[in-house]
Design a protein around this nucleic acid. Structure first.
Lengths: 223, 223, 223, 223
DNA sequence: AATGAATGAGCCTTCATTCAT
DNA sequence: AATGAATGAAGGCTCATTCAT
């Protein structure tokens, strides 16, 4: 009697995506060959063209999958009527930080490199589209805060977003580089910087920057 | 009377460097082949090995050359005894912004991509070294400001530097992306964003962020 | 009924090996390019990397394949209990001569050049290992002959092996060079030297040299 | 007052030759680039083409220079009327051994590789010509020995020369490889083989082989 | 549905030589 | 006489993709 294979064929595809994610994160898009992906995943090279059409298409699919969660999270924050604008900003900062710092920010770095490169236009556009969509949610929060006279009105929104995304990107990019400085209080950073501490620090830092930038009465919060 | 040779033999080398700069900026390091560089410069491929030894060495020479100016400028600011700490910060922000935004920030983006990639270790290390050296100057300014009771004392220096470099990087990376938002005052950005306006805005923005973060009495400055 | 595939997929690989053998023999390892091999074999250059990994690996595979037969033959001689030591030496000389003179000794010359060059260490070591392994068999024969009081006991084994291998190598290397001499009996070598005659002569010569060197009673054999 | 350079211009050429000799010996002809030679000699690359015309011509000049001494030595031996034929053979063996084993036999190996390769025809022919010329002297000694009834008459001269040259070539080629065998007397080769010992051994070995091959009464000599 | 084999274009680097001075 | 600069060809290898089965 013939055995029937129950294998879910989408498994292989998913596994290929996960493997690709890992390798792209480590080596970048260019330096990751389809052969590397296939070998690491224990499949045939041709599978990548077969499943995704091309290396680029694989990457695009990877992106869409991985960025969906942030999108939903932000929407939930914006639409929550029980939160005041500043609390929404705080949650937004927490959400962004958590997502970007995930596994060393490798996926985020990968995305930012592609946008910076603007060579694979399809990919760049896709990424830009998704970033923009998310920032629209932040925009809504801020407009709400101004209306409610909680935030100041002279806000350079594009620049503020550069500070938000830029600070996070720089934190994951420069890794522990900047932490090599002894801090201004003269204390050396003796203990190895761990990812949790970084997460806490960047969140606190961004909230302080945002509070002092946005709030009409920042003195109410002890940042 | 001896004839004096006017021909500067370093011309070709310099031209090769400039050509490489342009192509690296456009396509990134990996996607720029030595053949492309040589062809665009109207020279033989072998000249790149001849002059620089390798594609990587060329890149390193390019980096060193292009980053020397910033280094000198910062040193001058720090050592200037006629300036108070906050003025130094302002000048430092102006200096960084000008350098990074130069020709669309292409070189800076290139550098950040390489650091982010951490694949060509020689290059990554070289870039980190040069960034760190420059930030040391900023560090001195801030320590001085604290001592003189102009700056607050609870400063997370590594994070603040992430905001400085990160904001600038993001501004040149996302290009005009973020400006596609209508601003929070409801006015559309109708006119095309030109590089000068961006420069002014990012400088003003960073000064505002830094003033409110660093100064004990930010209300004295109308940011 | 299932169809049986007759196509041996190793055909192409084998053909590539044979083509490489021929070209290496003619031009040497360095002067034979992978492109030459591929073109002559009517295949794509990439196939060499595909099948063998690299040009060197191809060569190593070639070596191992071609030297296996001699190894087996020698083992058979040594272990044959019906043969007296001197008969084993005779068979050994016949075997070595036949193998080395095969197709003009091209493979043997190739091997000796590589050992002499000692540049590609992997290859040199591989060749040395295989030569040493085979000579161990000869060593056993000689030790047996001494024990049985057929061979003299003051034998410089390493030197004797140099004479064995060296004479054969020189014969194939100098090709017909040495035969340009009129022989000592005054007779000119008028007829073209053919490979069979050379084979006979070198075997006879080596047996004579070995008999007079090894045997306690060489006068029993009319060499 | 202008200084006058006294430099003998042939010095540079000679130095270039010596440098080339060293590098060719170490790496072989192909793997030694003209740049390497020029750099090691502290001169310009173009000098090689300038002085010698090409890399090959340089090699030819090198060969001729280095092989002249052996030629003279052999002629002296043949023409010496105070020596009996066997003494001449002994001297000839000593002379050949000394020349070939000089500095690890590197030049000799180089020559044999080129002959074996037969790719650079000019060079191969040149080497063959010089070898043949020298062997003619040996031929004369042997003919003399036969006439004087000291040597047997059934001598395969070409083969005997293969044994002479081949044994020496193999000795320098296989380096210490063959010495890794413990000798047939069961004694291990514990002490490192030094070049002087090898020289003595190969001379003794060749004399023993030649005595037993050539002499009508070998028992008179205790080889 | 899935794959091993095969492709052709491209990569960076090195080569021996020649050119202009 | 001597050289630094420049050349064009060729080197081995890797790539993403497609083909035949």
């Amino acid at each position: 009697m013939k055995e029937v294979k129950i294998i879910d064929h989408s498994d292989k595809k998913a596994f290929l995506l996960e493997t690709a994610h890992q390798l792209f994160s480590e080596n970048g898009f260019d330096a990751t060959s389809v052969r590397m992906i296939a070998e690491k995943a224990g499949m045939n090279v041709a599978m990548i063209s077969y499943y995704f059409g091309s290396k680029e298409k694989l990457f695009e699919e990877l992106l869409v999958g991985k960025t969906n969660y942030m999108r939903e999270q932000l929407t939930a924050i914006v639409e929550n009527k029980d939160l005041d604008p500043w609390s929404k900003i705080e949650l937004m900062i927490d959400g962004y930080s958590d997502r970007i710092l995930t596994s060393g920010g490798s996926l985020h770095k990968l995305m930012m490199r592609e946008v910076s490169l603007k060579q694979r236009t399809e990919i760049s556009n896709l990424i830009e589209k998704r970033i923009m969509f998310n920032l629209k949610a932040v925009h809504e929060i801020i407009v709400e805060g101004i209306k409610k006279k909680v935030f100041v009105h002279n806000i350079d929104f594009p620049m503020l977003m550069s500070t938000l995304i830029g600070t996070l990107t720089q934190t994951v990019t420069s890794d522990s580089m900047f932490f090599r400085f002894e801090n201004v209080d003269g204390k050396k950073h003796t203990k190895k910087i761990d990812v949790n501490e970084v997460s806490k620090r960047v969140k606190k830092h961004l909230k302080r920057v945002f509070a002092r930038y946005l709030l009409i009465h920042p003195e109410k919060y002890n940042y």
